[in-house]
């Protein structure tokens, strides 16, 4: 996936450039935080989490997905976050906090959280969790549900469309293919994008890609 790097060479700084979701993370400038648009929007004076934000069913919903079965065993020890390579360098990505929000039922906050897309799926958290929570899989489930709501970061859209068009995740330029054969490698095997498109139609994947977001 790092092939997209040249494209992004210019913009190194922002951590969440791709997403359109509103953020309440601590990384916002102080002036924004003091304004507290959250409570304005909900027409309430207090900064507390409001009753309508809780969806106690959310944790069960996650548990019903493959890989989410053990979610409710989490006792918030922080092992996942402490050795997470991303969390060590990010100001906002905390797998434990995402799980905490899910357990509390803050469905909207989890699914619209931009940090959701920062998991590198290295599975260190999953391997080390003392309560067998498959943390990386739980985050994948969050993402899959967010996609159903129309949130897909551009990069995943591109990868998805490429796969359906070419069979593989990248469009390989002609020049490279020529170069390949010059180095003595056999030509790349033929691919069958038609079969993939058929499958994508069947499963609704195509719809997801073309849908809003």
């Amino acid at each position: 996936m790092s092939e997209s790097k040249p494209r992004q060479k210019e913009k190194v700084e922002p951590e969440r450039e791709f997403t359109k979701a509103t953020s309440t993370s601590s990384e916002e400038p102080l002036s924004d935080m003091t304004k507290d648009k959250t409570s304005e929007r909900r027409g309430s004076e207090t900064a507390s989490i409001k009753a309508h934000e809780f969806d106690p069913h959310f944790k069960h919903e996650i548990s019903n997905f493959h890989g989410g079965e053990k979610l409710k065993q989490c006792f918030q020890c922080g092992t996942c976050t402490s050795d997470c390579p991303i969390a060590r360098f990010s100001d906002s990505y905390r797998p434990r906090s995402l799980i905490r929000m899910a357990l509390l039922g803050l469905k909207d906050r989890v699914l619209s959280s931009d940090t959701l897309w920062l998991c590198a799926a290295c599975f260190t958290c999953t391997d080390r969790c003392p309560q067998d929570v498959e943390v990386a899989s739980v985050i994948r489930i969050f993402r899959n549900i967010a996609v159903k709501r129309g949130v897909i970061p551009q990069i995943f859209k591109e990868l998805g469309s490429n796969i359906l068009e070419n069979g593989i995740a990248y469009k390989i330029p002609e020049l490279r293919l020529k170069k390949r054969e010059q180095t003595g490698l056999p030509p790349l095997p033929k691919r069958n994008p038609k079969a993939l498109e058929k499958l994508a139609k069947e499963t609704g994947f195509l719809k997801k890609l073309k849908g809003s977001g």
């Binding site: 918030q76 020890c77 922080g78 092992t79 976050t81 402490s82 050795d83 969390a87 905390r94 434990r96 906090s97 080390r128 003392p130």
Partner: peptide
């Protein structure tokens, strides 16, 4: 927070503990 990893600094034989202070996230 639960310590997830202890790393030794070879020269000093001191140690670095990785954990999350979960109260501060």
């Amino acid at each position: 927070g639960r310590a997830s990893h202890v790393i030794e600094t070879p020269e000093t034989k001191n140690l670095v503990i990785r954990a999350e202070d979960t109260t501060l996230s």
